[in-house]
Design a binder for these strands. Structure first.
Length: 934
RNA sequence: GGGCCUGUAGCUCAGCUGGUUAGAGCGCACGCCUGAUAAGCGUGAGGUCGGCAGUUCAAAUCUGCCCAGGCCCA
């Protein structure tokens, strides 16, 4: 008999698979989106709507994608899909950064150092192949993530039109008067006669001479006064320490720390000033006795004091610098702006030009008469001996120090730091810094501290050096007159070059000579007609920094300033920064309205994830094993603002959560298999209270998700959804409506009402989750009954429904759920005692008072029974606190709905059924839908 | 060394402008169900809110210092 009744109930049935088989099925969805042109149709659908301009920052086309790319691109995809589904026109054009050192070094490793133009062009060709290969590779990997993007319209910084824009923007900056030629120290390998990038420098053990050198003080009266010592007529000097005597001819300043204490010491027949803390070690090292004099005073008091260069007719001023340390030396630092980065920055701040009398072969220039033409390394010991002979060296000749010294990675020779001519964009000559800072204030930074970060960087940065002594990039379109040597930097000439490059690509610069590149009849101010072209290329950061001009300004449907830039927080120094400078310089405003940054990926220990780590699992492995959907969920799971963790533990947890969400969908879909929304939907007026509650609660969920997307709080999506699925749906609403879904008349309004709610929620959840769980949402959408759009993405974001809103109802039900919690606790005690198993075996009396009592009475015992999932529930007046009394029901069990009592035995025809089930069964028999045996 | 950021249960997150016994989900433990079943339900145990001082009647929440980690510089 029980089997017969089983046939009379409506159990869930669906094709929607429990097993997602994501790794296998995801490519099918991607194919579906491509073939059905879903993103294109979405764009078409929104083409007259308000645009949301998003501009993609170009990743470097070098190797496959890692977790950082996944995070970045999925975040972008969330924004693009959400905005699109909300009805904005969002054209997401992806890009790749293709020029630059890593690719060039790779090609150089294969082909060797270039010797002539043909070599250069071969290397550039190889670089191009490499960049194209990897950008295409990355594109395929990104497609696999389910990202919506206009792949066919991708931009690359090596595209001819892009290169043309780079040069054109440069012309605008030249027009604005911001470009100048100056000098800046760079790593220089004398053996290879070339500038080196940081990445080409290795550090090796090296033995250097160690010299303590005296700079006699010019302002004797002043220093006696400051240090509170008597002028006894004996020599008085500041003393520096260095391991590069060859930089002494270029010594222009002595730096002291503003806060350290400095003091004079008597050494033999002279007096020497150094940092007090370094006195003991210094004099020991020099092998001399010393006696402190006067008082120790802070370095800041020595500022502007003038000294004599130890062997050149030159005044050396004292300056303060925070980088002076007490780890080694004397606390007085010999400063040669032509031979050191810090030295350069310090001197630049007060307008002292770098001076580096060393040529490209590492030999002294004629300025340095005594050692002119000598290799600096050969000159070193001679300089030391000379210092000694001149009486300005305190320590013995021949002392050395073994330390790490930079060397060329190619020839392994020690390198020099050498000021060379470079091109700069001035931060202050035409007010660029000021403008940029003002624009930073106008921009919205997410998170807000981004403002302070980039503001500080722009405020303190030096002029932008845009020249690089490399090959793989866009040439700096400048020339030099062969007659007078002056540079030719002219906006119109540059625009002419831009057209050439736009037509033929930047290789053309290397193929042609100056005469073929310049407009006909170009003449120098001096009358010269013959020119040489600049050999340097432009900094790649300038290239990516004009992407707003090359892409956002030129492509259809985009415009500048764009609505959003979205990258990792390292880009405050990188792309956000350079893009701001180029736009502020040429347009007077920032290229963006909002800038969002995310953190980096780390492991469980909080360390940055790297491929060299033992337990490193590449994203591709996760895609193959668990599916890209899990990675998408991961992005929506964690708060991207700080660094986020990627670990097997988290992936496992996500797989579990994913299953919960998927299974909830499956259950809801299973109960909709006979539901046609067009025919069967029930209006709000006809719905039972709990269904109205569910819609009100669902409305809150929609509101929360909409807000989460809108405010870029993406992780709230996951938490809101998992909470809805578990707390509200699985363990409450769905559990309670099972009786109605299974046992009520299939076509009755009680069942149809619940189905109406389910249908609403499945469709709504699929639509609001589609930006994150794109594959699953589409999968659900396919199984959703009724007329609908071809894709969930074309259905739009699920809007909040004002008619569902009912806060009073939500309040009431939150009380009901508190009561329910009390009941389940009591039932658990009975279960532990072995009195009941299923809650349906119990009957319950709830005692309450005041508003709670009123509320429960208002509900009625029937609804209360239903909600508590027991066989019978009764309300009585009691104390303030809710009291629950429960006992096992002794009534007979209805074999159809499994509840106890409820009129079992009262129906003559079906004596074993409860009143409700008997009625349902009778109707079914009458309708010929059910036959009972016997 | 400097600028900016992060640090709440095993994991991921809530905790508004300082105010009752710091919340949720997952995981874990124990139990139930077998009409969501490679499912579902219930109960429970987990936290010196990175550490130390301070301000306050009152601090996870404000201030200072320290520790750990990160990005960017030097």
């Amino acid at each position: 008999m029980a089997d017969t009744y089983k046939q009379s109930i409506c159990l869930p049935k669906t094709d929607f698979p429990m097993k997602a088989s994501l790794a296998r099925r995801e490519p099918e969805f991607i194919k579906f989106w491509e073939e059905e042109k879903i993103y294109e149709r979405l764009l078409e659908q929104n083409k007259d709507k308000e645009p949301f301009v998003f501009h993609d920052g170009p990743p470097y086309a070098n190797g496959g994608i890692h977790h950082g790319h996944v995070l970045n691109k999925v975040l972008k995809d969330l924004v693009v899909k959400y905005r699109s589904m909300k009805g904005n026109h969002v054209r997401y054009i992806p890009g790749w950064d293709c020029h630059g050192l890593p690719i060039e070094l790779n090609a150089e490793r294969e082909l060797g150092k270039p010797k002539d133009t043909d070599d250069k062009l071969s290397i550039r060709k190889r670089c191009e192949q490499f960049a194209v290969k990897w950008s295409e590779h990355q594109m395929e990997e990104l497609k696999r993530l389910g990202v919506f993007s206009l792949w066919d319209e991708a931009y690359r910084t090596i595209d001819k039109d892009y290169e043309q824009t780079i040069v054109e923007e440069l012309a605008k900056i030249v027009d604005a008067g911001m470009i100048y030629r100056g000098r800046k120290p760079v790593y220089w390998c004398a053996g290879c006669r070339t500038a080196l990038a940081e990445a080409e420098v290795e550090h090796h053990d090296h033995v250097s001479p160690s010299v303590y050198v005296k700079y006699s003080v010019i302002d004797r009266e002043k220093i006696h006064d400051v240090l509170r010592i008597e002028d006894d007529g004996t020599p008085l000097s500041l003393m520096i320490w260095t391991t590069t005597p060859w930089t002494l001819p270029a010594s222009l300043v002595i730096a002291v720390h503003p806060a350290y204490k400095y003091r004079a010491y008597r050494v033999g027949s002279e007096r020497i000033v150094i940092a007090q803390e370094m006195a003991q070690t210094t004099f020991e090292e020099c092998g001399v006795g010393s006696e402190p004099l006067g008082e120790a005073v802070e370095g800041r008091n020595l500022v502007d004091l003038r000294c004599n260069h130890p062997f050149i007719e030159r005044e050396i001023p004292v300056m303060t610098a925070d980088y002076v340390t007490l780890e080694a030396g004397t606390g007085c630092v010999h400063t040669a702006p032509g031979h050191g980065q810090e030295d350069y920055a310090l001197c630049a701040s007060v307008g002292i030009e770098p001076y580096a009398p060393v040529d490209e072969n590492g030999r002294f220039e004629s300025d340095v008469e005594r050692w002119s033409g000598e290799l600096v390394w050969d000159a070193n010991p001679k300089i030391v001996q000379f210092l000694h002979d001149e009486g300005v060296l305190l320590n013995p000749v021949g002392q050395t120090l073994k330390h790490q010294y930079p060397a060329c990675w190619r020839c392994k020779q020690p390198i020099v730091f050498r000021a060379t001519p470079q091109w700069f964009i001035s931060m202050d000559r035409s007010g660029l810094r000021e403008k940029a800072l003002a624009e930073i204030d106008k921009t919205r930074w997410i998170p807000p501290w981004g403002h302070d970060r980039i503001h500080g960087m722009v405020e303190g940065r030096p002029d932008w050096c845009i020249s690089r002594q490399r090959l793989w990039g866009v040439p700096l379109p400048f020339f030099f007159c062969d007659s007078c040597g002056e540079s030719l930097v002219d906006g119109d000439v540059i625009r002419h070059i831009a057209r050439v490059i736009g037509e033929h690509g930047s290789d053309e610069w290397f193929r042609r000579d100056a005469a073929d590149l310049l407009p006909e009849g170009t003449v120098c101010k001096c009358g010269g007609k013959s020119f040489t072209k600049e050999e340097n290329i432009v900094d790649v950061w300038f290239e990516s920094g004009v992407s707003w001009a090359a892409v956002a300004q030129k492509r259809e449907g985009l415009s500048v300033p764009v609505d959003l830039y979205l990258e990792g927080s390292d880009q405050h120094r990188g792309w956000f920064h350079t893009s701001l400078l180029t736009a502020a310089a040429t347009r007077g405003h920032a290229p963006y309205k909002t800038v969002l940054t995310h953190g980096f990926i780390c492991n469980e220990k909080g360390e940055i994830l790297s491929k060299s780590q033992k337990n490193f699992v590449p994203p591709q492995k996760t895609i193959e094993a668990q599916g890209a959907e899990i990675l998408r969920l991961w992005v929506g799971y964690e708060d991207y603002r700080s660094d986020i963790v990627y670990s097997p533990t988290i992936i496992k947890s996500l797989v579990d959560s994913y299953r919960k969400i998927r299974n909830t969908f499956k259950f809801m879909l299973g109960n909709l298999n006979d539901f046609d929304p067009a025919k069967d939907s029930v209006s709000l007026e006809e719905m039972p209270q709990i269904d109205l509650w569910m819609l009100a609660r669902f409305n809150k969920y929609l509101k929360r998700l909409d807000k989460a997307y809108d405010e870029y709080n993406f992780h709230h999506i996951f938490h809101g959804t998992i909470e809805l699925a578990t707390v509200e749906l699985s363990s409450f609403y769905l559990d309670i409506i099972k009786d109605r879904l299974y046992c009520e008349q299939a076509d009755g309004s009680l069942r149809r009402s619940a189905q109406t709610v389910l249908h609403t929620m499945v469709g709504g959840m699929a639509r609001v989750l589609a930006p994150v769980l794109s594959f699953t949402a589409e999968d659900v959408w396919k199984s959703l009954p009724g007329d609908k759009e071809d894709s969930v993405f074309l259905a739009g974001f699920a809007d909040v429904e004002p008619r569902w809103e009912d806060d009073a109802l939500l309040d009431r039900w939150s009380t009901i759920r508190e009561v329910r919690r009390e009941v389940t606790k009591v039932l658990e005690v009975m279960r532990k005692a072995g009195d009941i198993g299923n809650a349906l075996q119990a009957q319950v009396v709830v005692r309450a008072s005041g508003s709670t009592l009123e509320l429960l009475r208002d509900m009625g015992s029937e609804l209360l029974t239903e909600v508590l999932l027991v066989s019978a529930a009764r309300v009585e007046e009691g104390a303030d606190e809710v009291q629950v009394e429960a006992q096992p029901s002794k009534d007979p069990k209805c074999p159809r709905c499994w509840r106890l009592g409820n009129g079992v035995g009262t129906d003559a025809k079906h004596p074993d059924l409860c009143t409700r089930c008997a009625a349902v069964v009778k109707d079914l028999i009458a309708a010929g839908k059910l036959e009972l045996e016997g």
